[in-house]
Simulated scan of single mutants.
Amino acid sequence: MKLASLSTPGGLDNLSITDAPDPGEPGPGQIRVRIHASSLNFHDYGVVTGVIPTANGRIPMADGAGVVEAVGEGVQEFNAGDHVVSTFFPHWLDGPAPIDNFSTTPGDGVDGYAREVVVGPAHGFTHAPANLNHAESATITTAGLTAWRALVVDGGLKAGDTVLTLGTGGVSIYAVQLAKMMGARVISTSSSDAKLERLKTLGADEVINYRSTPDWGKAVQELTHGRGADHVIEVGGPGTLPQSIEAVSIGGHISLIGVLTGRAGDVPTARLMAKQARLQGLIVGSRAHQQAMVRAIEANGLKPVIDRQFPLAEIADAFRYEASGAHVGKICLTI
């Protein structure tokens, strides 16, 4: 079978496509899956560029969607022919988060889905949404579930709430779609007027160019008549957090998801305290969270936004395109 692997110390030039032996038939509790698609995430980019160290020869990509070819003894949830999608934390099935690292995350601590066939534990997958194709399904593992957990699981999103999203990456676009699906008002930011227009077509009610309006936290307050945003999808980190705290409502919820502007920095703690807001870090979600999201996607007919697709052989070019920042939504690999 074909697969992509990464030679240490990483870097896109150290990604190679090779042939490997077929993994064979599934054992007890396992399933064999023919992978048809994956999708790129900022975390994957960190791994393949060497920013996040991993083992030599690692197969990258946390997201994988495909078709079950065979099931092992004792597997009752899946049958051959089922469409499935991977989970980010294969051993976090339900309940509170039991892990604070990526040691079990495919494409980082263990081999991922940049390959044609995988044999692994059945609990490392869920059924894919019935209304999505493989590429669309591959977007829910990391980006989709992160937005779902931030808004629905942790945030308790309800109709009439105001959600603030930052930028046009996969998590942020999913947050726009999920918020509108749940009946919320959405305010979105970007540095590109063209991308702001695209955000409007995806459902954003108001948009702010953060380059021409650097005090965008105040602009959110003005757009909400001084109330602020009930939920903030904070993907920037220390460089944007002060403005997010300014933008959030009193008693609101900020989901700290990304570190696009760095891993450490000053936090205006006095302002956060005065806002009495909840600043909550999170990393994706559990298998049960993903199953709930799948049901919601099916019930509402949500269709993920895919900007562009690349064949597996062009995985390095796909990551170069991601690094350019030209995309809106998800970038996928076809396998």
Results as ranks from 00 to 15, higher is better:
242 P>N: 07
101 N>V: 02
289 H>W: 02
317 D>C: 03
262 G>R: 12
17 I>C: 02
65 A>Q: 10
159 A>F: 12
77 E>Y: 05
113 Y>T: 06
292 A>F: 01
112 G>P: 04
224 T>L: 13
295 R>V: 11
68 V>M: 06
303 K>C: 04
283 I>N: 10
230 D>T: 01
102 F>M: 09
46 G>R: 09
3 L>N: 06
184 A>L: 00
216 W>F: 13
319 F>Y: 14
120 G>A: 15
116 E>Q: 15
224 T>S: 08
312 L>W: 01
124 G>F: 09
290 Q>G: 02
157 L>R: 06
61 M>Y: 13
149 R>W: 07
152 V>H: 03
40 L>C: 09
330 K>E: 07
84 V>I: 07
83 H>N: 11
2 K>T: 02
153 V>Y: 05
301 G>E: 04
140 I>T: 09
124 G>A: 15
46 G>H: 08
82 D>I: 00
38 S>Y: 03
24 G>Q: 13
124 G>H: 06
313 A>W: 10
326 A>V: 02
262 G>K: 13
213 T>L: 02
288 A>D: 12
324 S>F: 01
29 G>F: 02
77 E>L: 14
179 A>P: 01
210 Y>S: 01
21 P>R: 11
17 I>F: 14
67 V>A: 10
328 V>F: 15
276 Q>P: 02
66 G>Y: 03
248 V>W: 00
237 G>H: 06
230 D>Q: 12
192 S>N: 10
227 R>I: 13
312 L>K: 03
287 R>F: 05
35 I>L: 12
11 G>P: 07
238 P>F: 12
259 V>W: 14
57 G>W: 01
97 A>W: 04
201 T>P: 07
117 V>F: 14
60 P>F: 04
274 A>K: 07
255 S>D: 10
18 T>M: 02
215 D>M: 08
213 T>P: 00
44 D>S: 06
12 L>Q: 00
49 T>S: 13
276 Q>K: 08
137 S>W: 03
132 L>P: 03
319 F>W: 07
204 A>S: 15
239 G>F: 03
81 G>F: 09
213 T>R: 11
105 T>A: 13
187 I>R: 11
317 D>I: 00
275 K>G: 10
114 A>G: 04
108 D>A: 14
252 G>T: 00
181 M>Q: 11
106 P>H: 10
27 G>F: 12
166 L>D: 08
21 P>H: 05
178 L>S: 06
16 S>C: 10
263 R>E: 12
251 G>C: 10
97 A>M: 09
299 A>W: 01
41 N>G: 12
156 G>P: 01
319 F>T: 07
119 V>N: 07
70 A>G: 13
258 G>W: 08
37 A>V: 15
167 G>T: 05
44 D>G: 05
127 H>M: 11
272 L>M: 11
10 G>S: 10
163 V>S: 05
199 L>A: 01
288 A>W: 06
177 Q>G: 07
265 G>V: 05
125 F>G: 03
97 A>S: 15
216 W>P: 00
91 H>Y: 11
19 D>M: 13
